[in-house]
Design a protein around this nucleic acid. Structure first.
Lengths: 149, 149
DNA sequence: GTAAAGTTGATGAAAATACTCGGATTTAGA
DNA sequence: TCTAAATCCGAGTATTTTCATCAACTTTAC
């Protein structure tokens, strides 16, 4: 029941991208440096994010990535789903097909439980916007600054 | 963000054990047959369940396993934690030590989010008792019976 | 034209997970 | 007392997932 590094790194990178958005496109090299994540690994993650329409890319020299929507309109769930696929404790809650695969010798007594868990997580992840994490990040930076005087 | 087969199989096995509890000890062979899970794999799972004090064992011929508490007093969370370890989306929400390991170059902006997710799941899994799943199972069986007339 | 930057696919190492095997120990009952 | 049925235990294997790297290619600013 863990979020993989794809999700964790990717979310951190997205917060970083949102924070530095005002200065135009951001090349992965910068995010890699600031967040201490391998640039080539970030390439993989951003390929997924781009295909999901969460970021857009500008190719060529001085290119990089941009948010494709305002941070208020991007949820944590959007980002995690793009990176990890659907968030579900078990596959059978995702589709009828997956449910059929289920070895139903238990009559799926646990099915309702897993549905509840999935809905709970979905709702929570959907309620947190990228903009909120962005503000938190900026506050944190300020606090660090004051602290180090 | 998946529950492993340890958790899924183990939970099913526990529901089975609860349903057939009235007839005394239940050997793994029976659970394995009814639930279609390898008996040897079940041995591993029940070793964990026993060490966590959720079930107790009776060795020797005509031995088997028993619930160590009433089904009303066993929660789904108890079972999953015994089988999979602590349920947390990321390690840093589990202890101060784990948090220190965290590569804090992001100032842990995502920390609060993960704490919320963990608490949410914890609360939900804690609220569902084994007795509820047991009743669901029995209802399901009855329905199946009527349906097949 | 060239250097910077994104794009893509292949691949490999490491870790976690799922599952098996063989044998030791315990115990009820013939 | 012997045997069959169980748990108990440690190791070992196979598969899958995760993490990361590399190389070749395309696009574009200057």
């Amino acid at each position: 029941m863990k979020i993989s590094t794809r999700g964790r790194y990717g979310l951190r990178a997205m917060v970083d991208l949102a924070v530095y958005e005002h200065s135009g496109v951001t090349p992965l090299r910068e995010i890699a440096e600031r967040q201490n994540i391998s640039e080539q690994y970030l390439e993989q993650l951003f390929a997924s994010l781009r295909k999901s329409g969460i970021v857009k890319s500008v190719r060529g020299a001085h290119g990089g990535y941009l948010l494709n929507h305002a941070p208020e309109e991007i949820t944590v769930k959007d980002i995690l789903v793009a990176l990890e696929g659907p968030i579900a404790p078990v596959d059978c809650v995702l589709s009828k097909d997956a449910r059929k695969e289920c070895d139903s010798s238990d009559g799926c007594v646990t099915y309702n439980l897993w549905v509840k868990v999935k809905n709970n997580i979905d709702e929570l992840l959907d309620s947190v916007k990228l903009s909120e994490l962005k503000e938190e990040y900026k506050e944190k930076k300020t606090t660090d600054f004051i602290y180090h005087i």
